[in-house]
């Protein structure tokens, strides 16, 4: 059984839930895996530190919750502080480097930053930050295929913004691939 637990954290309004939705949709609808998305509800989802949890499984996902993330994606410092202690030993931590400072990283974790805010600004829309993070994750974690992720991005974003969002996805994806290639050549 191969079960991967992913937690995405950030501020309400950063598109945390949409990022989780894209990952889940990619796995469940295009990669033929089982995926369960759960999310934090209530006031925190409207401004405070909020999170989306995705469990991706090659078999039927029984237990639906994320307890010890294999992958943590963070887009805000409060989300980092709150969630980093939960991760599994050896977890992959992906963060937006201008928004998150990765102090007290648990031992054995692999952490990679991306200047996603700058990329988003270069693309002309700050709000595509979350999509850049999805691309980044797709490159660095073997959870969903890049084809599936692209299809899920198109499915999930508002009509008329597909091109912009795919561009954002590619930006994050390429940045992630560079890191991956560098890592493997080390």
């Amino acid at each position: 059984m191969s079960r991967t637990e992913i937690k995405i954290g950030g501020l309400g309004g950063q598109g945390v839930i949409l990022a989780g939705m894209i990952l889940g949709r990619a796995a469940a609808l295009y990669d033929d895996m089982d995926a369960t998305l759960t999310q934090s509800f209530g006031p925190e989802a409207r401004g405070g530190a909020c999170s989306a949890q995705v469990v991706v499984n090659t078999e039927r996902n029984l237990y639906p919750c994320v307890t010890r993330p294999d992958i943590l994606v963070v887009m805000s410092q409060p989300a980092y502080e709150r969630f980093v202690m939960e991760v599994k030993p050896g977890a992959l931590v992906l963060y937006e480097e201008s928004l998150v400072e990765t102090h007290h990283l648990p031992e054995g974790c692999r952490a990679f930053g991306i200047p996603a805010t700058r990329f988003a600004e270069e693309l002309g829309r700050r709000m595509v930050l979350n999509i850049i993070m999805v691309g980044f994750l797709t490159a660095l974690a073997d959870v969903v295929s890049v084809e599936a992720a692209r299809k899920a991005v198109v499915d999930s974003v508002p009509k008329g913004t597909e091109k912009l969002n795919l561009g954002a996805f590619e930006k994050g994806y390429e940045f992630g691939l560079d890191i991956k290639n560098r890592e493997s050549s080390c």
Partner: peptide, 10 residues
Amino acid sequence: DESVGHMTER
């Protein structure tokens, strides 16, 4: 229940 209601799956 809330868990099933707010859980997203295929």
